[in-house]
């Protein structure tokens, strides 16, 4: 499988990372090298093998569906690059 420049641009877009057009050919080539390495996995017979879900056989614990936390708006916002009036501020999302 080979990644072309258009695919590299699409992946960058999906990952929400701005990549300048002139950097795309080198990026596509890197992807191809890494995917070439990964494609060794096609040699393995995985017929009838279940994909791993949990590395240690454990049941997730249950707990009461209750509020155990909260009321710390100032702490939640303390590291925000832009917080106003108790909210995270972002550029306009809807025109």
């Amino acid at each position: 499988m080979s990644i072309d420049i258009a695919t590299a641009a699409k992946v960058a877009k999906l990952a929400r990372i701005k990549v300048e057009d002139e950097a795309l050919p080198a990026l596509a080539e890197e992807f191809n090298n890494i995917l070439g390495f990964i494609e060794q996995l096609n040699e393995v017979d995985v017929e009838g093998v279940d994909p791993m879900v949990s590395v240690t056989p454990m049941r997730l614990k249950r707990r009461v569906d209750g509020v155990t936390d909260g009321d710390q708006q100032d702490k939640v916002l303390a590291n925000a690059p832009d917080a106003r009036e108790g909210f995270f501020a972002v550029p306009k999302v809807v025109e």
Partner: peptide, 15 residues
Amino acid sequence: DAYYNRARKVRTLIK
């Protein structure tokens, strides 16, 4: 399926 699920199956075999 081709990459992620296959890798998780190989992980089962490694374990």
